[in-house]
Amino acid sequence: MTFVTKLSFESGDRAVLEETVEDLKRTVERKGAECKGPHASSPEHARVQLYKRLAPGDQFSPWEYTVYGRRLEIHGSDDVAREMVDREFPDSIHVEVEVDRKKPLGHGRE
């Protein structure tokens, strides 16, 4: 049985996101693990209303920002995946990790 480690990254700083994900991919491949991605998600645009007081009324101009996303998968190589997940990432990047267990083709249900 093999494991697939799925990493999802989100950041408002596109340059730092790209650099971090590409560095991670190069490191995984250099260590001999299979890496798929990075896959880009459509950027999400957000708009936040800012009020001058706690009560409704006067507002500042809304704060607008874009969130960029990337996904990366590490197949097998659990030790490499664990090492990559334990890395320090920049504070501007939000990282989520999901681990899936894959059964070989033709393997029956338990």
Rank of each mutant, 00 (worst) to 15 (best):
V16S: 10
G32V: 06
R14G: 04
E18I: 06
Y65E: 05
E22K: 13
L7Y: 02
L50E: 10
D23I: 00
H94D: 13
L17N: 03
K31L: 15
W63R: 15
G76H: 04
E44I: 06
K25N: 05
K102A: 10
K25F: 03
D58P: 00
R30W: 02
S11D: 02
W63G: 01
G57R: 11
V28Q: 05
P43Q: 04
E98C: 04
E22T: 10
R53P: 00
P62M: 03
E44F: 01
L17F: 06
E98V: 09
K31M: 14
Y68M: 07
R101Q: 14
C35H: 00
P56W: 06
G57I: 01
M84Q: 08
R30D: 13
S92D: 13
A81T: 02
H39Q: 11
D100Q: 14
F9D: 01
D78R: 14
E110A: 15
F60R: 15
F3Q: 15
V80L: 06
W63K: 14
E22V: 04
S42M: 13
V28M: 08
E18R: 14
K103E: 06
Y51G: 06
R47P: 00
T2F: 08
P38D: 09
E22C: 09
H94T: 07
H45L: 10
E10N: 11
S61G: 09
H107D: 12
K36M: 07
G69T: 06
F89H: 08
Y65R: 13
E29M: 13
G12I: 05
D79V: 05
P62R: 07
E98L: 12
S42D: 13
V99E: 14
I93L: 10
C35D: 02
L7V: 02
V67P: 09
K6S: 10
K25A: 12
D23Q: 14
